[in-house]
């Protein structure tokens, strides 16, 4: 439990850093670290497949995409963030976390739940027998993403 808590604190810390850091490249890397830690949290929750996906896809592939974009857009002027936001938002965040810590436990204690039977079978069986339609959805989402990127980077035909 202590290990999990430490890992989760790390996830939140690096996520906040990813948003707060001024340099975009550094924030992309902290986001990757946060994903890596979250992946380990998933492993410890007996969800190895989700953990592998989180580490390889989110910490790996998405980070590569981010860094590629940052490299392609490097030449632009630095974006100046608002000063007010830099002061006020951390305070709001700390206040939210405090309220979260006070309220969440009693709130969740009130959630009534049906006593659920344990799941039977392996992950493959659950995925294939229970959630096959999600695979169709995944194919659709991937197709949508591929065609979206193709459309946005297509060569314009001259028409003026």
């Amino acid at each position: 439990m202590i290990v999990q808590t430490a890992l989760l604190i790390g996830v939140v810390l690096f996520s906040v850093l990813a948003i707060a850091l001024r340099d975009v490249l550094r924030s992309a890397i902290s986001l990757a670290v946060a994903s890596l830690l979250l992946g380990i949290v998933f492993f410890k929750m007996n969800a190895p497949y989700a953990g592998v996906f989180e580490i390889s896809v989110v910490a790996g592939l998405i980070t590569v995409l981010f860094i590629l974009t940052i490299a392609l857009t490097r030449a632009g002027d630095e974006v100046r963030e608002s000063r007010l936001v830099n002061w006020v938002f951390p305070l709001v965040f700390v206040a939210f976390v405090a309220v979260d810590a006070l309220v969440m436990k009693s709130l969740l204690g009130k959630v009534p739940a049906l006593a659920a039977g344990a799941e039977a079978g392996t992950f493959g069986e659950v995925l294939w027998k229970g959630r096959t339609f999600d695979l169709v959805g995944q194919i659709a989402v991937i197709l949508a993403g591929v065609f979206a990127v193709l459309a946005l980077f297509r060569k314009r035909e001259k028409h003026d």
């Binding site: 999600d134 959805g137 659709a140 065609f147 459309a151 946005l152």
Partner: peptide
């Protein structure tokens, strides 16, 4: 969850179509 998933399928296609 299927509602969420297909919501996103339509949404991602529509972002590209708007642009």
């Amino acid at each position: 969850f299927g509602v969420y998933l297909f919501l996103e399928v339509a949404a991602i296609a529509s972002y590209a179509l708007v642009a």
